[in-house]
Design a protein around this nucleic acid. Structure first.
Length: 402
RNA sequence: GAGAGCGUAGCUCAGCUGGCAGAGCAGUGGACUGUGGAUCCACGGGUCGCGGGUUCGACUCCCGUCGCUCUCCCCA
């Protein structure tokens, strides 16, 4: 009989992998709480349209990577491929803009994209995302990038922060036509995909990885040179703030995000070791309005937890384990001792097996025990236990006080 | 969507030119119910991913298929 297997791209998180994952996610959560972000638990399913309208009809995510399906009444739903769309939907649905002058939310949970699985990439993966609604000040962008940088520093993950500005409604159309004009001159050198996406979303051609395209856009006009007054000032101040915070960043004029909703600031934290982006984000000043809310500027970022965990070299050791060994007919006493040790805050395992003391200690070794707690008839009669350090072999008698 | 590599015991893997299915580790039991971290002995464990073909004979060769891993694209 064939064994069942998990669905392609969906995997079980456990053991050391899970310990790393939890270490990472807990560290990030703590950090977000320090920055006074408030958690929101969002549904995993939204109406398909929420994603189409926010991420963009022409993006790869929407065109070919969504788990979309119809419910029993024929409505189109989708498993969320990212968190921002849902966060914005919730922000509008609950009129959170009326609650506070600005709102800082974070969420954590599984995301779903129908992609070919590979190292650090799954069809179900996990993200923590943070969004600030209601502030157009570059101070916000700077603080968010600072938060990202702090997280990565504390995890000991070397990254480069890349930033760029992709302008706004005012300056991007002008730049777009300048860029289109340029691209039409070098079109014969572009890859097929780029020729195709040139008209749909010319900015994306800039960050194409195909060498020929990279070469072709080397002399391309840069968005940063075409920013309007407001965008230029925003970008300049952002850079000042980053310098003030001593955050090493690198300007990448070709940094363009794959989601349509971004405006002004975009940024990525890139691990140069693996050549992958671990945290990415940016500003999306029109999205709230586009999804039916009041005009509300916003910035956010998302971090891929599997990817980030993969880069973490060391996780803090677990609490030392105490192993209570009932030796002889003293199970009642052993149960009691185990409970008592746990009440003291210790991590305790009670041996569920019988056997000679030798066997029990062998068992202790295999379970990775730090302290063996031997309780036999002598111990029970005298109200004490024998504590043996499995690393040093030292053994002491510990009186139980009441 | 495109490409490459790999599927043999719970794990890591060997298996030659086609001829009885193997090892180490792990597991279980054992002179051993008051002292472990490489003592010894014994034992269990397999549809050789699946289907077909070639052959007297296939883990081995051929075709197909599924899965896993990795790369590109894309993305966190």
């Amino acid at each position: 009989m064939d064994k069942f297997q998990s669905v392609r791209g969906f995997h079980d998180l456990m053991g050391d992998e899970l310990r790393r994952f939890r270490y990472v996610s807990e560290l990030i959560r703590e950090k977000l709480l320090l920055y006074n972000f408030e958690e929101i638990v969002l549904p995993v399913v939204e109406y398909l349209e929420v994603f189409q309208r926010s991420i963009g009809e022409t993006t790869d995510i929407v065109q070919k990577e969504m788990f979309a399906f119809q419910d029993r009444k024929g409505r189109w739903l989708a498993l969320r491929p990212e968190g921002t769309a849902g966060a914005v939907r919730a922000y509008i649905q609950h009129s959170l803009y009326a609650l506070k002058p600005y709102m800082k939310l974070f969420y954590e949970g599984p995301m779903f994209r129908y992609e070919r699985p590979q190292a650090g990439r799954y069809r179900q993966f996990h993200q923590i995302g943070a969004e600030v609604f209601g502030s157009k000040d570059p101070l916000t962008d700077a603080e968010l990038i600072s938060l990202v940088y702090e997280i990565l520093s504390e995890l000991g993950i070397p990254v480069v922060i890349e930033i760029n500005s992709i302008g706004c409604k005012i300056c991007r159309p002008a730049y777009r036509s300048v860029l289109l004009e340029y691209l039409s001159h070098v079109e014969r050198n572009l890859c097929e995909v780029c020729i195709d996406r040139k008209d749909r979303n010319p900015l994306r051609v800039l960050d194409c990885k195909v060498p020929a395209c990279k070469e072709a856009v080397k002399e391309a006009p840069k968005m940063v040179d075409y920013l309007c007054e407001e965008c230029r000032e925003h970008y300049t101040r952002l850079k000042e703030y980053l310098s003030a915070l001593s955050i090493p960043y690198r300007e990448n004029p070709y940094l363009v995000r794959g989601l349509d909703y971004y405006t002004k600031t975009v940024f990525e934290a890139v691990s140069e070791e693996l050549g992958i982006t671990v945290i990415a984000g940016g500003r999306y000043d029109y999205l709230v309005e586009e999804l039916g809310g009041p005009p509300t500027p916003a910035v956010g970022f998302a971090v891929g937890l599997e990817r980030l965990s993969m880069l973490v070299k060391e996780v803090p050791a677990q609490e030392p384990l105490y192993f209570v060994i009932p030796f002889g007919p003293v199970e009642d006493f052993a149960l009691w001792v185990a409970k008592r040790l746990r009440a003291e805050g210790k991590r305790v395992e009670l041996s569920y097996r019988k056997g000679s003391l030798k066997k029990q200690l062998e068992l202790a070794n295999r379970l990775g025990v730090r302290y063996a707690v031997i309780v036999g008839e002598e111990e029970k009669a005298g109200s004490f236990y024998t504590l043996k350090d499995m690393e040093t072999g030292e053994q002491v008698r510990v009186e139980i006080t009441f």
